[in-house]
Design a protein around this nucleic acid. Structure first.
Length: 614
RNA sequence: GCCACCGUAGCUCAGCCGGUGGAGCGCCACCUUGGUAAGGUGGAGGUCGCGGGUUCGAUUCCCGCCGGUGGCUCCA
């Protein structure tokens, strides 16, 4: 709430005409008040419960000025983020009644165009403005947080189903789990350097900051765009194979939509707001809304369940705090594969949960991320655990390693069970990748129903699943992992199917260019991403550049290769090997089989490529 | 959002206590035709993040803003 205070000799105002359709009805159009404190007030978003606090602030000033009369004057122009009229009205009425106990209060009518004349006293304290923060809201939030902390229990569960105290567990064999636990519970951080993946995303010309946009909205260079698209395609294929139906839903939603509103209000507002004329919309922060609204209108029966729908939320928007944004790890606009499964009952929900858990493991594996690169967290309510011990144990047994468990006495969120796979990066920070949750709340909130055996309407359980997590975050994890590999003396690289250039051809002299070009075309025709370094540079220099690009296969072509019809291939991380073309093709084919394919994202001749970054 | 640090050529960075700026890489030209991580010579390129202030004079000092990074908070 923003308030402009004027200590006045008098104020006169007159309501002229309605500014809002639902302006309040008034009896007396004209008012005058002498020797008073006038408070021009803008009620802002989130001010719902602010009246008691605001009245204290106003009283304080009134006391200092020693006035008996207070004028509450609704004045919208102090703030760009006004509360809705009904909220503002409520707050003003509240203020009026609280202040009315001690002061004579005039309240100027709400929702009218008014003319006014004011005489300001002009002494040092006679004019001041104040921003009264909706601390009530913050308190509530921290109360909820405190409550969560009070009734949260942390354990490590071993594959035998045993729960161990987090502080007593022996982490010797699981250093990453230790890092993850520390990060989760105490939030330990002790590093001061640019995250490795940020330097890499720039150096490899994958992605970069875009200062022309809002922070946390990235640009992708051709190579980065390719990698991103391949990841998206891959996840999409997996989800469709799993049985999901792809849909597309809007990226913005009515701020005042009833079901959406109650969902939004459960959390501190972190939305991007879009104004369309006078109407307010928020940008989606996940694909949930669109899919829920869509399923609300669908008709289906228990025989069709489970039903799975999927969308690649490009983008999902979250206006994270400035200080939280980092490279590709935490963004304000990101790409989220989001699948929702409607399940008839808890048994079916559990069955799906388990299958999706396994799918997530397999998906990450194809990005080169293995158990141990990431740690498993499983979170649930105590009730759920009591009824499903064996089910939980089974999840831990499946990964065959200790898992972080968080258990709540009460349900704070919309889910009763959730898992995440948390990647532990080079700076010992953790970031969630895959996740699945069993939602027991939103089917009701959105009025999603199916017909059961008796023909009665029932709310299904809803599973939220992102088998990979945000696409940008997958890129982040791959780059961080590559960096950690290089620290251990291994050559950093992306999986071959994701490498922007899979094969680089380097002719030893200009005269071999025709032959080299022919080799390039042979490979390209088979769907591999091949390019050719035709620049006027030494062979070793070209090799160096290719290595810096993490190219998995470098083929040098000279006299020997041409006369003997062989290929000399420098395989990343393995060394130089001489082979026949068909042998090379076999190796390549094996590396990309089953993965999405795409064309080279840049001109095939290196001499034709711009430099996007240094 | 709060606190701290940083912002000099496309990139990475040097520039002491105020007197209008340098290197390497990259780019362009020429020479060089090369065999598995940098061949040589020359040239172009800068409102020193933006806006104010102090000063005869500011890249340098002060304030504000923007952007990046780290910490706190947060992470539906």
């Amino acid at each position: 709430m923003r308030v402009l205070f004027i200590h006045a000799d008098y104020i006169e105002y007159e309501a002229r005409e309605k500014a809002l359709k639902n302006a309040e009805e008034i009896e007396k159009r004209k008012e005058r008040c002498d020797e008073c404190l006038v408070a021009f007030i803008s009620v802002e978003e989130g001010d719902d419960g602010i009246a008691p606090r605001a009245s204290k602030e106003i009283e304080e000033i009134a006391e200092k000025l020693n006035v008996e009369r207070i004028v509450l004057y609704p004045y919208a122009h102090l703030s760009p983020k006004l509360a809705s009229p009904d909220v503002a009205m409520k707050v003003l009425l509240n203020l009026e009644s609280i202040l009315g106990e001690k002061y004579e209060v005039c309240r100027a009518p709400f929702g009218w165009y008014k003319s006014f004349v004011i005489s300001c006293k002009g002494h040092p304290l006679s004019e001041l403005s104040k921003e009264i923060r909706a601390e009530g809201e913050e308190e509530e939030e921290s109360e909820a947080l405190k409550a969560e902390k009070k009734t949260t229990y942390w354990y490590i569960m071993t594959p035998d189903g045993e729960l161990h105290d987090v502080s007593e567990f022996n982490y010797e064999k699981y250093p990453n789990l230790k890092k993850f636990v520390d990060y989760e519970i105490s939030g330990t951080r002790a590093v001061t350097r640019i995250p490795p993946h940020v330097e890499l995303m720039q150096k490899l010309e994958l992605a970069d900051y875009e200062p022309g946009s809002d922070s946390g909205n990235m640009r992708y260079y051709p190579k980065g765009k390719l990698v991103k698209r391949l990841i998206e395609e891959y996840v999409e294929n997996r989800v469709l194979d799993y049985g999901a139906m792809e849909v597309e839903t809007p990226i913005m939603y009515d701020y005042n939509h009833p079901s959406l509103k109650s969902y939004l209000n459960r959390f501190p507002a972190r939305q991007y707001i879009v104004l369309s004329g006078k109407d307010k919309y928020f940008l989606r922060f996940a694909a949930c809304f669109g899919q829920f609204l869509l399923m609300h209108d669908a008709t289906f029966s228990y025989k069709q369940l489970p039903i799975r729908i999927y969308e690649l939320a490009k983008y999902a928007f979250r206006r994270e705090q400035k200080g939280e944004l980092v490279g590709l790890r935490r963004l304000r606009a990101f790409t989220m594969p989001d699948m929702h499964t409607l399940a008839a009952d808890m048994e079916q929900a559990k069955e799906e949960f388990r299958r999706q858990y396994e799918m997530a493991i397999s998906v990450l594996k194809d990005f080169g991320l293995e158990l141990g690169d990431y740690e498993v967290a499983i979170r649930f309510t105590r009730d759920f655990y009591e009824e499903n011990r064996e089910f939980i144990n089974d999840l831990v047994r499946l990964v065959n390693r200790p898992v972080l468990i968080q258990m709540w006495d009460e349900r704070f969120f919309y889910f009763v069970l959730k898992f995440e796979f948390n990647f532990v990066d080079a700076m010992n920070k953790a970031a969630a990748l895959s996740t699945v949750q069993i939602d027991v709340e939103n089917a009701q909130r959105y009025g999603i129903t199916y017909y059961d055996e008796k023909g009665e309407k029932k709310n299904p359980y809803i599973l939220h699943c992102s088998p990979s997590g945000a696409v940008e975050r997958v890129m982040y994890a791959m780059l961080e992992k590559a960096y950690m590999d290089s620290q251990r003396g291994r050559k950093p690289m992306l999986p071959v199917w994701l490498s922007p250039t899979q094969v680089r051809i380097i002719p030893v002299k200009d005269e071999f260019m025709d032959y080299a070009t022919a080799v390039m075309h042979d490979l390209a025709d088979l769907g591999f991403r091949v390019d050719l370094d035709d620049r006027d540079l030494s062979v070793s220099r070209k090799i160096r550049d290719a290595e810096k690009e993490w190219i998995p296969y470098i083929v040098v072509i000279g006299e020997k290769e041409i006369s003997e019809e062989i290929l000399t291939v420098r395989i990343r991380g393995e060394g130089v090997k001489v082979m026949k073309m068909d042998e090379f093709l076999k190796i390549l084919e094996e590396k990309v089989r089953g993965y999405p394919r795409a064309k080279l994202p840049l001109p095939a001749l290196l001499s034709m490529r711009p430099k996007f970054r240094g």
